[in-house]
Structures are given as C-alpha cells and as structure tokens.
Nucleic acid binder design. Structure first.
Lengths: 209, 209
DNA sequence: TATTTTTATCACCAATTGGTGATATATTGT
DNA sequence: ACAATATATCACCAATTGGTGATAAAAATA
C-alpha cells in the first residue's frame, strides 16, 4: 500500500491517474456534447481506458459524474475577491463587484454553465450540494453585511440579488447556446455585454438609495 | 379527400386525431420525464399508436418535436393583457404587469419551463423561432414605448428588462426543480414569491426615477 | 525469482433505441 | 359489392447502451 514515488517517473498503471482521466473525459464530453453525451462507452473511449474501470473505481456512471461535480470548486472565483473587502457601505461595492465578475466568469466558463444548467434539469444529490454551498456562502454575506444595513427591507434586497444573479446565469447561458439577441441586445458582443454591466451597476446603486 | 363529417361521430381511423395524440404524448412525456425521456418507442406507446406513424406523419422524431414546439403559443399569455394599455408613462405599468404576470405564469406552466430550458440546451430551429417571436414581440414594446421615453438610456433600460425577464425565468425553473432556497428565499412559498414580486416592482420603479 | 495483488483489457450479454418493409384493416369512391 | 386508398399494426433489423465475468499484464511483495 505504499503509494509514495520519489521520482517524477510514474508507473504505467496508476489508479489515481486513471481516475483523473475519467474525470477529464467527463469534462471534455460535457463541454462538447452536453449531458446527453455522457454515455459510459463514450466516456471510457474518451479517457482511453476500459469502461469496466468506471464501475471498479466509481461504482458506475452516476458515481463518476457525482465525483466530477464534487471536484468543481464552484466558488473559488468569488472567494478570492471577497477576502477583506468589508468596507462599511452595506456591501454595495462588494455586491457590485461580485455580480460583475460572475457575469464575466460564467460567460467564459462553459463547464460552469453546463453544471448550472444541470441543476435546472436533474435533481442529483451532488448538484444539491453545490447549490447548498452557494447558499451558505451567500448567507454569510447577507447576514453579516446587507441584512443589518437594509433592516426591514433586508429580504427585498435579497430578492433583488436573487433576480440579478439568476438573470446573469440565464443570460450567459443563453448567449452561449444561441446566437440570437435578447431584448435586442447582442449578448456576445462587447457592446451588448457592457449594457448589461451598466444595468447591473445601475440597479445596485438604485437599491442603496 | 372529403374530410367533412357532419355528426360528432368520428371514424376509428383519423389522421389528424392521431397526429394530435402524438403531440399530446410529447407534452405528457416532456412534463413527466423531461427531454431525455422523449424516445420514439415511448412516445408511440404513450400515444397508444404505432411508432411507424411518427415517421409517416412527421418524418421522424425531430419533425414531431418541432411540430410540438411550434404548437406552443408562447406569447398568448402576454398579448392578452397588452391590448390597449398604452398609457403614457413610458411603459412603466405595462412592463411591471408584464413581468409580474410572467413570473406567475412561468411558475405554473411546467411545459413552458421545459421549453425555455430546451432553448438553453439545444439549438433547434423551431426553438429559435420561438425566441425570435419573443424578440419581435419585445421589439414592438421597446421601439414604440420605452426607447422614446428613455432616449440615450434606452439600451440600459432594455438591459434591465433583459436581466429581470431572464432572472424570472431562472428562478421559476429553479424553484420547480429544486426544493432548496435561493439567496435564502423559499421560491415555492407565497412569502418568498412576494419578496421577488416586490423586488421586481421596486426595480422597475427605480428605473423610471 | 516466485507469488500475490493491483490495474487494465477483452469478449460477451441483455435491454433499449431508432428505423423500415410487408401486411392487415378501415374508409372512401365507383 | 368492389376496387382503391388511407390508416394502422406487426415483425424484424442494426446500432447503441449499460453492465459483467474471465483473463491478461504490470507492480508490489516475499
């Protein structure tokens, strides 16, 4: 059971490396073909390994997919910025930065889009866990920062953020799948995206008036 | 070729009725199992007819699904209200009513949710046509009402509406698939939904200040 | 080196899926 | 009643899919 290997030279057969190949294959297929393309045969072929290993290592397709989802660190892109930006403006600048960076991040990260979409279609436990992480992360922000600031209007502000976040999600995904415009705005063009960014800024500002 | 039948008694074999059975089957399966459940065998069995007819009447599964999508009159729920509500307030009350009724309508209409979701996943021509209808419908509103009102800020207002509509879509779909909360709000409860409605009203009001 | 364990492949299975040609049955027109 | 046509069923196929037992090959251990 000694897994230690001092040199960088790895053996030809390596369980951990193989598991990773399967996870990478899931990501690749998800990116190119979407959920419906996630078939065991296809995954195994993409990983360059035998499908039997999926059952040996992950207990089946579902286990593999769950592990892939768990491997996605959903909130890493936010936590970075959050650090110690707790200026005493009721979370205004923080929320604004967070929403704008989300708008950009989700647009660029097709895998994150797929996982978000997945959460609207299936009811996987591992997907629920992701959503739960988001909620817990948000709870800290709301309870510690915005709720005390908005007092009796705290819930309305939460609703505003909910609308903006989910609007951002939808528009980014829509822009990726469709070439069409949305409300006459080209969400793939810099100009169109700037309009959305302006609207986000504007609405946050107005919410603090 | 004489299709006229005076009495209510229909013949056992009726092409139009059979086609409708297939369309109904698609709706039923879409509602219960989602897109991934739309298999020719399953559709035929649900319709109580032979799958061969799907190929005879619709040219295949895709043709049937396209015809189902086309059969969905997406904007009927909006056009009703729109009639002649053109008060000269820059479309404020109209937009507000429209958004609130959408929030309610989409929540109750699971089929509409599925089709919206579909538009985020697949790139079907028939789905594009639906999106196009929405755009054309919106164009009339924007060009005739809000653009003249907001002048140089016209595009920002469009972006605001884009964010709110897509936020409404996402939240309604999310609420249906997940039991979890979003930003700490229970989107299935009357209380939670009222908060969202208040936020929508609030943001529209603020946009017109 | 010989043995044991881990890692990976292979051949094969049953069930599902999309698809079609041959055929049966009902309806219509003569 | 008869033929012609429209409607529907059936049996069957090939390809795909999820899944597994037997086995090979590499690595670790003795």
């Amino acid at each position: 059971m000694d897994m230690e290997q001092e040199t960088g030279v790895k053996s030809l057969r390596n369980k951990e490396k193989s598991k990773q190949k399967f996870l990478d294959a899931v990501e690749k297929i998800l990116h190119t073909k979407g959920f419906s393309g996630l078939k065991v045969n296809d995954i195994a072929h993409t990983a360059g390994l035998d499908k039997k290993l999926i059952y040996n290592y992950f207990g089946g397709k579902d286990g593999l997919i769950d592990e892939y989802i768990r491997s996605q660190d959903f909130w890493s892109n936010i936590k970075d910025n959050s650090a110690e930006t707790l200026v005493n403006d009721g979370g205004k600048t923080f929320c604004k930065t967070m929403l704008l960076s989300q708008f950009d991040y989700i647009f660029k990260n097709k895998n994150t889009q797929k996982i978000l979409l997945w959460g609207l279609i299936e009811n996987r436990k591992s997907l629920k866990k992701l959503a739960n992480d988001r909620e817990e992360n948000g709870a800290r922000l709301f309870e510690g920062l915005t709720d005390p600031y908005f007092k009796e209007n705290a819930k309305r502000y939460r609703a505003i953020i909910a609308l903006l976040i989910s609007g951002i999600y939808y528009l980014d995904i829509y822009a990726t799948t469709n070439d069409a415009t949305f409300c006459g705005l080209d969400l793939k063009s810099a100009a169109g995206r700037t309009e959305i960014e302006n609207a986000i800024s504007f609405l946050i500002d107005k919410s603090y008036e």
